[in-house]
Amino acid sequence: MSPLQALDYGLDPDRVTHTDSPLAAARRRLGGRYPIDPFGFDPHLSDLLVPVVTAVVRVDVGGGEHVPAHGPATLVSNRGFGVAEPAAVTVAVRRATGRRLRVVGASPLPFLSGLTRRLGAVSTSPRDLAGVLRAGHLVAVPLAPTWLRTGAGTPPLPLMQAMTRAPVVPVAVTPGGPLGTAIRPWRVRFGEPVVPDPGDEPGDPLAAARLAEAVRDAVADLLGRDRRPSAGTIAGEARSGRGPDRRE
């Protein structure tokens, strides 16, 4: 059992079950009756902000069936500068599986650190990443940012050793509008999980390097497919029988 599953107040730290009415939410906040996890994540506050985020960051989701419905996994995605891609992946995961997503990359600045952790961010520490995975959560690990969101960046090598203990799902996030603009919904496409070799020792640096290359290639492949009209457009997906799950 995950240590977090022992928490109460009717809120599951891993899965969205229900949302309070505004009055009930205000009462809950004032009374202090909400769970917090050791990393500082506050699922109730996160639920309160989700409607705002989903209104601002609209997404098309593809390949949602590749995101594990239970248990730990790492989601590795491309990104540009800013927080648009992590926010899009968070909304997409929530829509595809109903699960909450932790995102590696909590701000190190004093006040922002606490705020981002409240919303599910964890530090870029291998120990923290291993701890979140051990607790059975989904964690998003962005690749290094690329200018103009043109491709898959460098994998975060210091974190890869911690990622050898759970499946890794490649994710491609592309802006829906022309020239990288977000006029249309973001396209979030999940690829087939890259499962670490069972023969590798958890934490083996060579296995981690191999995994990093495999995941980067998988993300680049997904991005390439997304940009090729025959395979990446919705029409192309319809031909392959893997269209976007839902669209908001």
Partner: peptide, 8 residues
């Protein structure tokens, strides 16, 4: 610390 928010 920045190295481990939740130390093991």
């Amino acid at each position: 610390s920045y190295h481990a928010t939740v130390p093991d």
